[in-house]
Design a protein around this nucleic acid. Structure first.
Lengths: 148, 148
DNA sequence: CAATATAGTTCGAGAATCGGACTATCTGCA
DNA sequence: TGCAGATAGTCCGATTCTCGAACTATATTG
């Protein structure tokens, strides 16, 4: 109902705009078999692979949901499951061939968005924005890797 | 895969944290029959009621989805559909009894979140943050009511 | 080595989402 | 005025997303 929007909603609007644009860019480039939910999980995969449980935690979905989405991504060739040498129970989800190909497209759109935002806000304000958001992460990101 | 997170993702993290907290506060207060998707739609209802199409647009879901969610909200007593005196095709979705009761709970949690954020960032940075986000809305919010 | 915890999966159900087609109403223009 | 096209909303059907619960396999801890 708010006329003057709260800060979180303002963030949501901008974040979703970016999300939509990246997804649209992927689709334009032919990666049209990926969904938003899948992309949200895929975006959390680290360069050396990430455990399913960690993906679920970071994407804030249940393990089963993450598993389901990784299934889709795997079938489409974006990711693969590999063994985790440090724990036989665990498996590492890694970016596979098709994911590697799609990545630059997403990255490029990301860069374009950041550039446009910087253009609109000015370098100084953009820097302040990132600074504030990064600081805010300390109290809003339950996952936030501590150093490591 | 990003190690250094992009701006949009930083926003997403903070925004979702707020969303989760507000929903949790509602549940604690006994409003445990509302879902996230429903709340996102409900949060867009203006003081004088809002058309379904507008809700759909703002929440970025299809009309059918908005309709479906409003159905749930209506059945639970949070909102009601009333006629739009200016257009017989349209109906205004308004906050109903239960919605009116729940609203202060959500608002209070919202205020608490903003206060905590301000505490963490400092007044100055928080103000800069809101300023940047508001400005950003000009290029990221396709809906953005122009003045009116 | 037994007890407990953790990683991941499977099963089943419910929630959310959309494309397409449809009715009712409104608007613009000949 | 009256009709063609746009718009508000709904219904139907299919797909995707989501989670709770229960389960297997491996790790950890005392």
């Amino acid at each position: 109902m708010a006329v003057d929007l709260n800060t979180a909603l303002l963030m949501f609007i901008a974040a979703r705009s970016a999300e939509n644009r990246i997804l649209a860019a992927l689709r334009r480039a032919g990666y049209d078999d990926i969904t938003l939910a899948q992309a949200r999980v895929a975006a959390r995969i680290g360069p050396d692979g990430t455990r399913l449980t960690d993906l679920a935690e970071q994407a804030q979905v249940a393990k089963q949901t993450a598993s389901f989405l990784v299934d889709q991504l795997e079938r489409a060739g974006y990711v693969e499951r590999t063994v985790d040498p440090t724990d036989a129970r665990a498996r590492l989800v890694r970016i596979a061939r098709r994911g590697t190909e799609a990545l630059p497209v997403a990255r490029a759109e990301e860069a374009r968005i950041e550039a446009e935002w910087t253009e609109h806000l000015g370098v100084r304000r953009m820097k302040q924005l990132r600074e504030a958001l990064t600081l805010l992460r300390e109290i809003t990101d339950p996952y936030r890797p501590t150093g490591a």
